[in-house]
């Protein structure tokens, strides 16, 4: 799968995420408290709500509508009403840009 230049690293605050749309799909790109970058599908697996409006705490993303929680490093669903894991994608930083393989 191709690597896509998604955004500047400093567009994302530490312990936060942004929405990234590409090729008719939506993704979420995260910057963890320890300054690592991750990428998952952008919609909650429970009811297709954009995770970009949610809350990042440590390595978890909480959906803004029903508080479903995922580990954004692995995609694992941690709290109901989410039961299905999020798809995850490789992410890396090069020259201040975040690249994701989608």
């Amino acid at each position: 799968m191709p690597w896509i230049d998604a955004c500047a690293a400093d567009e994302i605050e530490p312990e936060d995420l942004i929405r990234f749309d590409h090729g008719g799909r939506t993704y979420a790109i995260y910057r963890s408290p320890d300054d690592a970058f991750y990428c998952t599908d952008g919609l909650c697996t429970h009811e297709q709500v954009h995770l970009a409006d949610g809350l990042v705490q440590d390595h978890e993303i909480e959906c803004p509508r029903h508080n479903a929680t995922f580990d954004y490093r692995t995609g694992q669903a941690l709290r109901a009403p989410a039961c299905t894991a999020l798809a995850t994608y490789p992410a890396r930083v090069e020259n201040g840009r975040v690249w994701i393989e989608i």
């Binding site: 429970h46 009811e47 509508r65 029903h66 109901a80 009403p81």
Partner: peptide
Amino acid sequence: WRWSHARHHT
């Protein structure tokens, strides 16, 4: 009730 309340919010 966790599921019921999720529906109430949706």
